[in-house]
Design a binder for these strands. Structure first.
Lengths: 214, 214
DNA sequence: CCGTATATATGAACTAGTTAGTACATAAAG
DNA sequence: CTTTATGTACTAACTAGTTCATATATACGG
């Protein structure tokens, strides 16, 4: 398959191999959890081999941590929050909530990895460098919106941005994380486009009702 | 250890053995997940033996399903909702939310089992007989409260009780399910009494603000 | 510019330890 | 003598991780 190589093409290929392994492993860990996923199965689905997993990532835990770090790296890239600077605070907040909802809905793997990490008592997330720093920017964005809303007498005073973030996250996260049990318990498919569309607006309504000045 | 037995004492002991196994297995499955828990480890922590796990529950999956059924059996026993019949609708709803919050906070094993079941795509929850029926009563209770609140012009019209339940569940569930990642991301311990107390009231505030008539 | 050492990358087969599940024997009660 | 309950020892399959061999490209001294 591989013909003559230069230094660059070699580095490139190695990088592709690493990325390919991470993509496959992300799917497997998200699907079956850290304990449930199998190294041999991941290796098989890869364009590469088991040997290379150990070569690049050291072992199952190393691979899992790399997968987790990559997943968290993706979510914090949406610094599009600056877009909201020109909007009124309530519209900005709604837009931010919808963005959060959409991210969760379109990244079930991320949600499932987080679930799994909680099953494992957060033993690996602590190893990701600078994770708190990355999240601070989300809180800062929310604080800006809150302050602006309070100044415009649209929002109540005294809401902690961390609480606000927690509430938005909880509502958006649950929609993906508890999809299967909710379906079994209530016969509602949280993944259907119709339910999603309704819920997306509803979550924003809930948060805005709470934030609203009396 | 065991002396002379009668038929009854034998049945009783057998029942204690089964219960003991289920208790131990609940902790283990909640702690490590279905794939992560080990039959040998469960057996060791039991007053009984591995042999009896297979005798009573058939295998790992059978044991897990029995654990899941038992956990779901417990949560639906709080039919204390009738207590709220005498209260105004908003107070009743707040009380119900606080009850839900407390249940989640004091049963992390249940929350973690549900998380795990979602990791496994709800493959086992479907096997629990009559699970939908059991949940219908929760929705019915909520509907009663909503209707009463609407009649008293305390609540908005048109809120679907399933949506209301979903929102309450999401907020209460997240507080337990995402404890470890939230701590790692934001340095907030959702399990501390102070945070819990604040959050308990806050969740009720959020839902009530949304339900309130304009 | 050639040869040799060195770092990077990869394949194939193997292994030690684990893990779910079973076989067989037995004991007590009805 | 049959049903229920239980202890001991075993096994077949799996699973993470390793060993050894090797190919290719670059570094570097002569």
């Amino acid at each position: 398959m591989k013909k003559k190589q230069t230094a660059e093409s070699r580095i490139l290929e190695a990088d592709q191999t690493r990325t390919n392994i991470l993509e496959v492993a992300t799917r497997e860990f998200a699907d079956k959890g850290l304990a449930g996923a199998r190294i041999d199965e991941i290796a098989e689905k890869t364009n590469s081999s088991k040997r290379m997993i150990y070569y690049y990532f050291g072992g199952k835990d190393g691979l899992y941590e790399a997968v987790l770090e990559r997943a968290y790296g993706h979510i914090r890239k949406r610094e599009a929050e600056r877009l909201f600077e020109t909007m009124p605070a309530d519209e900005a907040l709604r837009a931010l909530i919808e963005l959060t909802f959409d991210y969760h809905a379109s990244h079930p793997d991320f949600v499932r990895l987080v679930m799994n990490e909680n099953i494992h008592h957060g033993d690996h997330i602590g190893k990701i460098p600078g994770i708190k720093e990355r999240n601070r920017s989300v809180i800062a964005s929310l604080k800006t919106i809150i302050d602006k809303g309070v100044a415009a007498r649209l929002f109540r005073k005294g809401v902690d941005p961390v609480d606000l973030h927690m509430s938005i996250s909880a509502l958006c996260f649950f929609n993906v994380s508890n999809r299967y049990t909710f379906e079994a318990n209530f016969g509602v498919d949280l993944g259907s486009p119709k339910t999603q569309k309704k819920r997306r607006a509803q979550i924003a309504d809930i948060i805005l009702a709470w934030m609203k000045a009396d």
